[in-house]
Design a protein around this nucleic acid. Sequence first.
DNA 1: TCCATATTTCTATAATTATCGAAATATGGA
DNA 2: TCCATATTTCGATAATTATAGAAATATGGA
Lengths: 128, 128
Amino acid sequence: MEMTAALAALTALANDTRLAIFRMLVQQGPDGLPAGEIGADLKVAAATLSFHLKELERAGLVHARRAGRQIFYAADFAQMRGLLTFLTEDCCGGHPDICGPLPASTQAAADCCPPAAKSSRKTKKETA
Amino acid sequence: MEMTAALAALTALANDTRLAIFRMLVQQGPDGLPAGEIGADLKVAAATLSFHLKELERAGLVHARRAGRQIFYAADFAQMRGLLTFLTEDCCGGHPDICGPLPASTQAAADCCPPAAKSSRKTKKETA
DNA sequence: TCCATATTTCTATAATTATCGAAATATGGA
DNA sequence: TCCATATTTCGATAATTATAGAAATATGGA
């Protein structure tokens, strides 16, 4: 994932309504939910919901699929992983062991969609 | 990490300048960089840079430390992990195996700050 | 064809955020 | 104490984004 796609994804998630929508869909799994149910659950007006769903879709974080009169929205897990990978990429200039032993680590079972940074070693000059 | 902290972090990252700053600091590691060098590298005016660094700090994504006349900013890796964990939390209603086998997976060496979702099982009703 | 349901598009308004010059503050050295 | 460097705060302006009512579109069923 490149910078601009990551920025689009982060911009999409940087809104309380959209973040709530996205998490609801992440927790729901690949089948997703119809727009109407999301709106009812989060109590957002239909027009507003539509606006936010479109933003999430534009960012590639969700995709839509019509089923009868309803439109189901589902999280795009590949895109989510791409974003998480982007954020941790090239951590610590290719020496991730440096930041690994930090506290507050929530290292539990890596059970879902683990982003796993693929380091590509881009050592920055030590300017301290 | 709760919703509001995650939202603050995402809002902080949803800006091209701040995203560039954050990634520069992630790649730099725990020692960080002085504000001036970040600004020179990214070509942002001092006042603008200061504004953005403050936003990142407010979100808990970076922390500052003075060293002589310079102020070093460094990424907060624990907070970063917290954010990634938050996003993947309770994925697929506690059955992460569902979304695991998706394509485009960048499953490489989980070498840096792996967020590893700690699932807490919150099965949503199947409303399809 | 006609109607009800589901969702989107249009449009205007309100609210938030980014930018950067200029002035202010903090530090270290002479 | 005086000066240079490093960074922040202030303040005003520009740009972007969210909101929701009303009208439009799409689907399925009678």
